[in-house]
Structure formats: C-alpha cells, structure tokens
Computed example of a mutant assay.
Amino acid sequence: MSAPAALVTGGSAGIGLATAAMLVDKGWSVTLVGRDRDKLLSAAAELGTDRVHVVAANLASDVAKDVIAEHVRRHARLDLLVNNAGAGLIGPIQQKTSKELDLELTLNLRSAVRLIQEALPQLNEAARSNGASWIINVSSMTATETPPYASVYSATKAALVALSSSLHAELSPDGIHVTALTPGLVDTPGTSWAPEQTRDRMIPAEDVAGAVRFLLGQTPRCFVPVLPLVAAGAGMHEMVNWRALG
C-alpha cells in the first residue's frame, strides 16, 4: 500500500513547512503548494526526501482543480488537505483598496472552499478505504479576539471556523474529519511585523504542526471541529499594540 499523502498550501515556510516536516517524519508523502517555485524547491530540499512534490500556483486565482489533479498524478491518493495559505493586511478599513480586499477574501477563504470541493472525491475514497481522512483549515485566534485594523482578516478567519463547523456536520458521517486550527500569534516569517520583544512568547510553528499530528492520531470516532492554540497571558491584545500598527 502506498504511503498516505497530504497537500499543504502555504508550504514553503512557517506553519506549512513545519507541518510538512512532521508529516514526512511520520512517513507521509506531501505536496507543497505556494506562489514562489524557488522557495518551494528550497523547502523540499530541506525536507530531504523524494516523497515531497512541489506545485507553484497562485491560489488567489481559480487553480484548485489543477492543483489537486497535479497532486493526484504524483501521489495517486489524498488523505489530508491542509489549507494554510493566507494574507493578512493590517490597516484602517477606510484605506483598504479593492485589490487588497479581494486578495484577503480570495486567498483566505475562497481558495480553501475551492480546494475542498476539488479534493472531496479523493478524501471520500481515502475515508472509505482507511476509515478516515482530514481537512485542516488554519484559521487564527483573530477569529474571536478580533483586533482593530485587522477587520477583513479577522472576518475571513472567522468564516473558516464557521466553514469547518458546517463541514464537520456535513462530512463527518462519511469519515472526513474537518478541523479549524485557531492559533494565536505564531513565530513565522508572516508575523515579522510584530514587535521583536513578543517573539519569545509566540507559539512556535512546530507546535501547530504538533496539533496536526494530534488530530491524525485520534481514533476515527473522535472529531475535533475547532482546536485553539494560545500563548501565555490574556491574549493577542496584551502582546501587540494593534492601534500603533494601524
């Protein structure tokens, strides 16, 4: 039997790369998806196995069908879809351009929906054959803490939580496990804007990958629709002066 296979978006760094490294360590085959082919190839080389495939694609465009098809051509199966690609543009709502609005809505939410739609035949087959398959949507604690100057980003991340909850009700009877991860600030290149003094309090990307490992380790009868990951203290409002950033 071939190794289980996962597709991870935003896979060239941060949470995506840490998750891919965990999966490779567990014997999985992985497809990394991102915009920059050179960064993807560098990430694949870092993982050090021919079980890693890369697909350079702009998920803000309607490329989901092609991305899933390329993954299946390489690995012949899909057991886990990790929707991790996203963009967070901090600033006053009055100054957000139509282009910025469309990017956040499309990349953070629409791309996840389209990938899920295209992946479902393979995920259903994996669940029938092996008892379970997984969709993990990387949301954010901003879905509930909703800081100022991050309104659209927070809205898209809250939508991912609602999407995951509804899909759990829809897909769990077929053995597909759907989870929204809602981490607080994670120490990745994507949070380079945060004050340097907060970095030693941020969640390591490897801990988010560990949450994925936890989800994969549960019995087929245990479902986890939402999984929060938080840092010490009262929360993100305590760690970051959002108004200063705005």
Rank of each mutant, 00 (worst) to 15 (best):
T198W: 00
A127W: 10
H177S: 07
A244G: 02
L215R: 00
A126C: 04
I15Y: 01
L160K: 10
L80F: 00
E125N: 09
Y149Q: 10
G210W: 06
L163S: 03
D207A: 13
T179Q: 03
A60H: 09
I136S: 04
L47K: 01
P4S: 03
P228E: 09
A5G: 05
H237G: 14
E100C: 02
L123I: 01
I68P: 05
A194I: 12
V138H: 10
V72H: 14
A132C: 03
P204K: 14
A64V: 12
A64I: 11
T144W: 09
L23K: 08
N108F: 00
A232G: 14
K65S: 05
T191H: 02
N124L: 14
S154V: 00
V152R: 02
A169E: 12
D102F: 03
A132K: 13
T182H: 01
C222I: 15
G86S: 06
A159R: 02
A234T: 11
S29E: 00
S61L: 12
P195E: 01
L160N: 13
H53M: 07
D79P: 05
S111Y: 05
R73V: 12
A85D: 05
A43W: 01
V186A: 04
A5V: 00
K157S: 10
E238P: 08
R128G: 10
L160A: 10
N108T: 00
G131K: 05
R77Q: 12
A85Q: 04
